[in-house]
Write a protein that binds this DNA or RNA. Structure first.
Lengths: 223, 223
DNA sequence: TGCGCGCTCGTTGGATGCAAGAAAGCCCAG
DNA sequence: CTGGGCTTTCTTGCATCCAACGAGCGCGCA
């Protein structure tokens, strides 16, 4: 229902974006036009167009005459991005608390339940997936399509850095508890409380990540 | 200090973006590749690249095989965008209230004073310019570079639609009063109050614009 | 006379070719 | 043996060219 026939550049953009978001292409990885062109069986033109577009989203960086690499924000910038994400989540949550419809309420409950199941099963990959869904449901519940898109975009952009974090000890259990708290606040219609909890939920990730940053060192420059 | 030597596509992107933001190219205007190429004395390739990038930012829309036009969001989406802008402004204000440094405090005072001067002089164009500066100062005072960029980007995207609005009766006077209120809240360090005032300040524009939408009708389809 | 079909033309999508800039290797001098 | 400058080579930037898709128009048929 969503997309009309897309041209090559658009499809390539989505494909490459997915590879970045899903960790196939790691931050710091170099993106050679000719190489990608050969890999996808197209000429350099659509590849260039795709890369240029990804550069605008911030997922990659192109330096003039120097080619493109997957963005590797420094710790400060990453913290700023997480803080911004926290603000967006807070805004979505606040609006959701104000405007919750029965449909969105049901979706929220279902997403929370799926998180619970994954958490109790101890299935990390599954929890990661359901966590993503849960947040997307909140974005949608804000009933602001544009805000929802912005939140999703930043979320995707941060995915490469959030991915590794759930491994932290018992983070899954704590994360789920926070989810439940957010839902509770939304259901009670308390805008301020919802915003505060949503913000805190994301900021915790931001805090955790600094350990991560230090731990991963330089090992992503390879391949 | 900011930009290294840029290639043609980047410069074209900035140029065209400016023309859109400053109202030279109005929403709905068609962007013909060959035409632009001739106008700027380059081939279609960098033009295409620039347009594709602008499409990602949302300033223009490209429909496959159908060419590009300056975005003309429908009223609903425009409201959503203003609401999102209000949230971003609220976040910036809140963080500014928490983190205000003497330098940013001085910048804030200066920007407010410039607004006052323009408002009292009744100079609409000047007020518009100083208003833009004032908001940018708040973004920066959040001390979150990424959030600041996001706010600026959305602000630019909304510029074509905000531009016409200050003409409303006495909006300038009211706007200045709101600015003063926001500054006051920031100086007092009251995060919640700052956020509320910043949000309201932007939302008022959003409300006003619906009249606008209806009033401008279809006259932008022309060149 | 009104409607549908096909053709032409204009515009965009993509490929290829060429030139210019940057990085890496090489040679020579100290 | 080491450092600096040149050259070579690889990659990107841009222009040109061809193909494919859409839109608008005219013709023919009911």
């Amino acid at each position: 229902m969503t997309h009309a026939p897309m041209n090559r550049a658009q499809r390539l953009r989505l494909t490459i974006e997915d590879e970045i978001v899903n960790g196939v292409l790691r931050p710091g990885a170099r993106l050679d036009e000719a190489q990608l062109a050969e890999r996808f069986g197209v000429s350099r033109t659509p590849i260039r167009e795709a890369l240029l577009q990804l550069a605008v989203t911030g997922l990659i960086e192109v330096k003039p005459r120097r080619g493109a690499v997957v963005s590797m924000p420094d710790p400060t910038r990453l913290l700023e991005m997480f803080e911004t994400m926290a603000e967006l989540e807070a805004s979505c949550g606040r609006l959701a608390a104000r405007r919750l419809t029965p449909e969105h309420q049901a979706a929220l409950a279902a997403a929370l339940e799926a998180c619970r199941a994954a958490a109790e099963a101890g299935d990390l990959a599954e929890y990661y997936a359901e966590n993503t869904v849960f947040h997307a449901v909140i974005y949608r519940a804000s009933r602001n399509g544009f805000l929802c898109e912005q939140a999703l975009a930043l979320s995707r952009r941060l995915a490469p850095f959030r991915r590794i974090q759930l491994r932290a000890r018992n983070r899954v259990g704590q994360s789920f508890a926070e989810h439940a708290g957010i839902v509770e606040a939304i259901l009670s219609g308390d805008e301020a409380e919802t915003a505060a909890r949503a913000r805190a939920h994301v900021l915790v990730q931001g805090d955790r990540f600094s350990d991560l940053i230090l731990s991963l060192g330089r090992d992503d420059a390879a391949a």
